[in-house]
Amino acid sequence: MPLSGCTGVQSALDPAGEEAAAIYRLLLVMVVGGTLIWCAVVGLLLHASQRRNAPWSERTAGRLIVWGGVAFPLVVLLALLAYAVWLMPSIRPWLARHAPAPETIEVTGEQFWWRIRYPARDGLPAFETANELRLLVGERVAFSLKAADVIHSFWIPVLGGKMDMIPGRTNTLSLSPTKTGIFRAPCTEFCGTSHTLMAFSVIVMEPADYIAWRRAQAAGDVPGGGEGEQLFARHGCAGCHGVRGVTGPATLGPDLTFFGQRQTVGAGTLANTKENVARFIRDPAAWKPGAKMPAFDMLPSKDIAAISDYLVGLK
C-alpha cells in the first residue's frame, strides 16, 4: 500500500511551536531524572541480591524504606508537580479570555477527514477547506474543535499537545507556531475502520504568503477547467464536494477548492498525484477501508482520468 508520509514531520521531539517546546523541555528533565532514579533503584536491588557480607539491621533497613520509599519520592514528585502545574497555564490558558488569539479556526472531525473553517479576518472573508491547515508563523492561533459523528482527537505533534473532538461539545485549543514548514497531524482517538488513515497537513507560512493564500482561497477557482470540470459536475462529484467559484456549495464531503495545492488525497492516505487521485476515485475503500465515499469504478477510465487531471490542476 503506497501510503503517503512525505508530508512533513510528525514528531514531538522536533518542536516547531512554543507549546511543544515547553513540553519537550519538561520531557528532557524527566528523562534525565528518571534514568538516574532507575539506575539507583535497580543498582540497589542488584546489590541487595548479590551482597555476601553481614545483613543490615532491621532498623537500618526500616530507615531505607522511610527515606527511599517516602521522603525522596515526596520531594521529587512535589518539585515535578509544581513545575508541571506552573507550565499548564502558559501552554493552555486556563480561561479563554487570558490569551485572545487573533483568529479562531473551527476544525470538525468527521469519519475520516477534517473540515476546516477559517473565520473572516482583516477584510478577508471566511471560507471552508479540508484536510490541510495553513498557519501564520509567530502568531498564536486558536482552534474551536468539534466532532460530527464520533470522537476524534486533534494533534499536531510538532506544535503541541492534543485535544479531543467530542460530539455535543466544543473544545478550544491554542498553538503558537515558531517555525515555517510542512508537518503532519494524525487523528489520535480511535474513530473507526480508517482511523489510521485520517491525517491532515499543517503548513506554517510567512505572513505575506499566508495573506496571499487566504485571499486566493476565499475567492476560489475560476470556471474553465474544461472537460474534467464538466465531468466533475455530471458524474455527481459536486453533490458532495464543493469547489468554490465553480460549483455550488456542497457540504457532505471535503471541500476541494484548490485541491491541487494539497499534499495528499484522502486525508493523508495517498500522495496527491494524478494517478493516486484516479485510484482513489475508482475505489476509495481499497485505499481507505471504511471510507464513506462510494466507489466510482463504473465510470469510464478516461472520465476518471479527466476528473483527476482537473482536480490536480486546481492550484
Binding site: 536491588l45 541487595a48 548479590q50 533497613a61 527511599g68 520509599g69 519520592p73 508537580l81 502545574v85
Partner: peptide, 27 residues
C-alpha cells in the same frame, strides 16, 4: 495530576520494603 503523582509514593514504599528485606536478610 497531583493524585496520580501521589500514588507513586505507596508504590515506592512497597518496592523499598522488598529491597530492605533483601538487605536485612541473606538472599
Amino acid at each position: 495530576s497531583a493524585a496520580s503523582e501521589a500514588v507513586a509514593i505507596p508504590t515506592g514504599v512497597q518496592i523499598f520494603v522488598f529491597i530492605a528485606t533483601m538487605l536485612a536478610g541473606r538472599v
